[in-house]
């Protein structure tokens, strides 16, 4: 932005690269988080409301339990219900109530880090607010974004919410147990998503009957190992 001056401006002032405050501040905080969490894997899990994020966290913790230590920060506009559900199955979880806001911002994560014990944690999963639009613009300092889309939402979502899929590493197609009952094509959704992001990995899962959960956990383990190797090389 043009430097401040004592003279009242007249006419037009061209402003080069005046990125909006909000995003500039967010990206700055995201960098701090990334610096702070060098030693553990951080995942930003995004989806529409009700795709099955919290349920997946519950199932994932059961499967990882022996091998890996996981923590969850869960964002919702209101209520602590999701964190309670996760704590009930023994997950180290903390609720971020966004106060009606449709996405989590980096500042909220940074503040939450003071209230969650991450000693010995291998992976921190951020369950974002159910919304495929706004969270796409907010870097939370994560290593990878994972987008979940359930079989009941329709297979046309990637092209409707391109930025989310563009910035994701992995797409989870959830509620696979319902595939026989709904018109949803895994091929179509994969094709559309890979038009946007050719490198996108895809795993089909069901938290109900367990399909794909081992594959998802193996993906997590692989990324955890890669992160640890990277942080080892840097340190």
């Amino acid at each position: 932005m043009t430097p401040k001056s004592n003279y009242a401006p007249v006419g037009s002032v061209w402003c080069d690269n005046t990125t909006m405050n909000l995003l500039k501040a967010n990206d700055y905080v995201a960098k701090i988080i990334r610096e702070k969490l060098k030693d553990l894997l951080v995942i930003n899990l995004c989806s529409s409301p009700g795709s099955g994020k919290t349920t997946l966290m519950q199932e994932t913790s059961k499967l990882l339990n022996e091998k890996l230590n996981m923590a969850v920060l869960v964002g919702d506009p209101e209520t602590e219900r999701d964190a309670i559900r996760m704590k009930q199955v023994g997950i180290n979880a903390l609720q971020i109530v966004t106060g009606g806001m449709c996405h989590i911002e980096a500042q909220m994560i940074l503040q939450a880090l003071d209230h969650i014990n991450l000693d010995g944690v291998d992976v921190l999963i951020i369950e974002n607010v159910g919304n495929l639009v706004c969270p796409a613009a907010f870097d939370l300092g994560e290593d990878f974004r994972v987008t979940m889309i359930s079989s009941t939402e329709g297979d046309d979502k990637p092209k409707k919410y391109p930025r989310m899929f563009l910035t994701s590493e992995l797409m989870l197609v959830s509620k696979a147990d319902l595939l026989p009952y709904v018109p949803f094509s895994i091929n179509a959704v994969t094709q559309d998503a890979r038009d946007i992001n050719a490198d996108l990995e895809v795993i089909t899962i069901s938290s109900l009957n367990g399909v794909g959960l081992l594959q998802w956990c193996a993906w997590l383990e692989r990324k955890i190992i890669e992160k640890k190797q990277k942080s080892f090389r840097i340190n």
Binding site: M1, G11, V13, T18
Partner: peptide, 20 residues
């Protein structure tokens, strides 16, 4: 992008602007 690219002001004495 999410940029403010230009800001225009009232009281625009265009000759002064051009000179600037």
């Amino acid at each position: 992008e999410l940029l403010i690219s230009r800001v225009e002001f009232f009281d625009s004495d265009m000759t002064r602007v051009r000179k600037q």
